[in-house]
């Protein structure tokens, strides 16, 4: 990991930040929805996943 440099990324710095922050926001939204959201439907659907991933459940 430490040997890689930013120069090998084919995106410009600005694009890289836009893509990175979009990815972080969408990813956080998905993980929150599947793992943490306090909705009975989401909880019941994701029940075994939440336990398996060690998300605080119940």
């Amino acid at each position: 990991m430490a040997t890689s440099t930013a120069s090998s990324i084919s995106l410009s710095l600005n694009d890289r930040l836009v893509a990175g922050i979009s990815a972080l926001l969408i990813g956080a939204f998905l993980v929150f929805g599947a793992g943490l959201a306090n909705s009975a439907v989401l909880h019941d659907t994701a029940h075994d996943t939440r336990h398996s991933y060690g998300f605080p459940c119940h």
């Binding site: 990991m1 890689s4 440099t5 930013a6 090998s8 990324i9 995106l11 890289r16 930040l17 893509a19 990175g20 922050i21 979009s22 990815a23 972080l24 926001l25 969408i26 990813g27 956080a28 939204f29 998905l30 993980v31 929150f32 929805g33 599947a34 793992g35 659907t45 994701a46 075994d48 996943t49 939440r50 991933y53």
Partner: peptide, 24 residues
Amino acid sequence: LANLVTGAGFSLLLAGVSLVIGYP
């Protein structure tokens, strides 16, 4: 379904961190 959503979510978070800190 939950695993697919969680997988995509963690993957996007990992990619997001990689892009923001500049380590591919």
